[in-house]
Computed example of a mutant assay.
Amino acid sequence: MTTINREATPEGDNIKGPHQLHSDLHEIWGNPRGLRALTIVNHTTLGLRFMVTGMVFFLVGGLLAMLVRTQLALPDQDFMSPDIYSQVTTMHGTVMMFLFAIPMLEGLAIYMIPKMIGARDLVCPRLTSLGYWCYLFGGIILSFSLVLEMAPSSGWFMYTR
């Protein structure tokens, strides 16, 4: 059974069907498209952003692990210098812990907890969005430190400090 919403207007009765009501609701609560989509603050989108970005950093960390394994494949391998090897090893641990594991679990929590408790959204959605952008830009800056050969080179145990 279809319900009809009648709004009294000075011109007379204005009858809105279910499709018009849906489009009005989407206009108010829907996510923007294009570049404005970067301003979305709902928990579903932010959780998915954290998890997708975490998977990208997982691939970066996997690439770093493959570089370490390539260096260790044969004795007296001269694939990387000792300083670069130390940077790659340190960055592998850092990327896997701080740019993959923790943000992946955080993204899952941001996505699932409001759904599990029946809440419409997070308590501070703009703060969560700020956290995502800080995570993304901080991860990019940290990754570029390896490209510029300015990455930390304290070895495998640096990520626990």
Rank of each mutant, 00 (worst) to 15 (best):
L67Q: 13
Y132Q: 07
F137L: 13
I117F: 07
A119G: 04
C124S: 11
G93C: 07
C124W: 13
T94G: 06
V88I: 15
T89N: 12
T90S: 12
L105G: 11
I84T: 15
M80P: 01
M97K: 12
E149Y: 09
L105N: 01
V68D: 05
Y132G: 05
D83H: 13
M104N: 03
L72Q: 07
L136S: 03
S86Q: 05
L67P: 01
R126N: 11
E106Y: 14
F137P: 01
R126H: 12
F100Q: 00
C134S: 14
G138A: 13
Y132D: 05
Y132T: 05
S81Q: 11
I113N: 13
D78W: 04
C134V: 15
Y135V: 03
V123K: 14
F144M: 14
Q87A: 01
D83I: 08
S81K: 00
M112G: 07
L127Y: 13
R126P: 01
Q71F: 07
V147G: 09
L142P: 01
G139Q: 09
I110M: 08
L108P: 02
L127N: 06
M80A: 08
L146V: 05
R126Q: 09
I102K: 08
F144Y: 14
I110S: 12
L148W: 01
Y85W: 09
G107N: 07
T94L: 15
Q77L: 02
L146P: 08
T94A: 13
P114G: 08
D76C: 02
F144K: 02
P125S: 06
G131D: 02
L127M: 13
P114Q: 08
Y85I: 02
L72H: 04
G131W: 09
M150V: 03
F137G: 02
H92P: 05
F137S: 00
L108E: 03
V88C: 08
M150K: 14
V68L: 11
S81Y: 06
